[in-house]
Design a protein around this nucleic acid. Structure first.
Lengths: 193, 193
DNA sequence: GCATGCATGTAAGAAGTTACATGATTGT
DNA sequence: ACAATCATGTAACTTCTTACATGCATGC
């Protein structure tokens, strides 16, 4: 109904509020810090940055000449942008819409193809363990800084969320494997008395 | 690049494989069982069902006259559809793309607006507790059936995933609240020696 | 010489949501 | 009388991804 840029707008404003950035570096920031909980493509970022400028939420300080030959455009949040960010911050966040393809496969395939599902679960466990390790790496870095620096709390809480999430998913998958194999045994017992 | 229907196709096939259904009842099934991990709208379901028929993955057994005046169309999976479902089942599931808006807000707002973030976290905790209770309700029902019925294992594992997920999220939010208030205290100490 | 990283951008298309139209039945 | 549930469907729109084009600098 409303012509809007969805939520892309706000992650851009939020990152700009930390420091003025180029579209490219915003993409890198998202990949670095939010990859596990949010993603944006260039196809979203560049057009949205233009819209933000049009709406007076950001300003460009073009540096036509740069260290490397390419021109770069640095975007800075304006006061109006800051206010808009604040407005969004105070709104109740949307309920997240999850789509776990593995769950569909588990649900549709456990009884007919328990071996395949078991393999998927193994891969899922490995994937979640890898993410978990990444999160713990982040947390160690933050702990080593040891200071009560306010500017890292946000990043720390993001990593902590990942830690909780990936642990839960790993644990679930392990439990699921157990239940699937338990059931297979039960079925065998019924067959061979 | 490829003209496809995304993943919608497969949840429809998966549900049809359990029993022939109408588009409407498929929607209800998704809402009932997968709501927390998958969602589809009528705008996706009806056109996709037509495509499935075109591709020979489903058949219609139209019941022009029904108990209520409206005509209903029951979709049944074909052998080819069954094979297609099987093919998808054996493929490695995609990495899920999460988008947690609350995490952006926490990350961007903890230091500047700790009170607002605290409120968001309270609401988030309540929301996750409600979902958790729902999942535990499901699990109790399944345990009461008590049988080693294979056809409920899939549903049970779905509910179990929800239990793990929502517990993790609730716990994270509680920990986040604690860390935010800890930091506020630290800042106060620095101010008043 | 070639791949990669930095940097900006567009076009095409896929995927998904929302609103609406139709209409009967059942319950309040 | 009105709302809700059953039931099918479409149109308009938004949102998002993917592929591509350009081009310099640097490292292998």
């Amino acid at each position: 109904m409303k012509k809007d840029t969805g939520k892309t707008k706000y992650i851009l404003l939020g990152l700009m509020a930390k420091r003025p950035q180029t579209g490219y570096s915003i993409k890198k920031s998202i990949e670095y810090e939010f990859r596990h909980f949010w993603q944006e493509s260039f196809g979203q970022i560049y057009p949205t940055l233009k819209i933000l400028v049009d709406q007076g939420f950001a300003e460009t300080s073009e540096t036509e000449t740069t260290q490397n030959g390419r021109r770069t455009i640095t975007y800075t949040i304006t006061e109006r942008g800051q206010a808009e960010l604040q407005r969004w911050l105070s709104e109740v966040p949307d309920v997240e819409k999850l789509r776990y393809e593995i769950l569909l496969k588990v649900s549709f395939g456990t009884t007919t193809e328990p071996e395949i599902i078991d393999q998927h679960l193994d891969a899922f466990i490995a994937r979640n363990e890898a993410s978990l390790a990444e999160m713990e790496g982040f947390l160690t870095v933050f702990k080593d800084l040891e200071v009560h620096r306010t500017d890292i709390l946000g990043s720390e809480l993001t990593a902590l969320c990942g830690k909780y999430l990936y642990t839960a998913m790993k644990d679930w998958a392990m439990e699921a494997k157990k239940r699937i194999s338990d059931q297979k045994e039960l079925q065998n017992e019924t067959k061979n008395p």
